[in-house]
Amino acid sequence: MTDEELVRRLQAGDPVAFETLYEQYQNLIVRTAALITGSRQEGEDLAQECFLRCWQQIGTLRDPTRLKSWLLTILTRSAWRADQKRKREMPVEELWEGETGESSLDAVLRREDERQLYRAIRALPDKQRTIIVLYYFNDLSVREIARITGRLEGTVKSRLFSARRALRSALGDEYETGQEVPDL
């Protein structure tokens, strides 16, 4: 089913279409949410909120071809809200401890430098980390990320630049080259 048809049926209140939406987008949303939060459980909680907000607010989506971007917009806003709430409620030292051991997302990484990189991504400020995930995992352009996050393209580029500089620094001198944001 195309996104246009899916949106049309969702806006008509078709519960079967909602199930189809979930099937089509569950991997994208859950995986993106898990990478942003660094936790499978929190990722699933965010994904649930994202799908339910989509169901309730689908009437506000004017351009059906933007369904995927719109879902990611809902997801990032929900993630940032959750992050704010967590910062208010949790001691700083516990903020990014997250899951450890086999349940940790980086348990599948075999190389130490990749684990080191993953830890550095986790340590980024939430908005930088979100933009890194959207750029490198979701393969979105700077323009698309700007639209999704409601930020200027210059802000997105600036955050990408800062994040990459922090990641280079975390990985050591052999990565200390280049300054430009590449066009993926």
């Binding site: 995986r31 898990a34 430098d113 990749e114």
Partner: peptide, 25 residues
């Protein structure tokens, strides 16, 4: 190592971690 390698490494690392996540029933 060139910056492109860093970009590739970020991409691959996130892909590996993200694609291993399966939504629970």
């Amino acid at each position: 190592m060139k910056d492109n390698n860093l970009d590739q490494m970020i991409h691959d690392t996130l892909r590996t971690c993200g694609d291993a996540v399966e939504p629970s029933p």
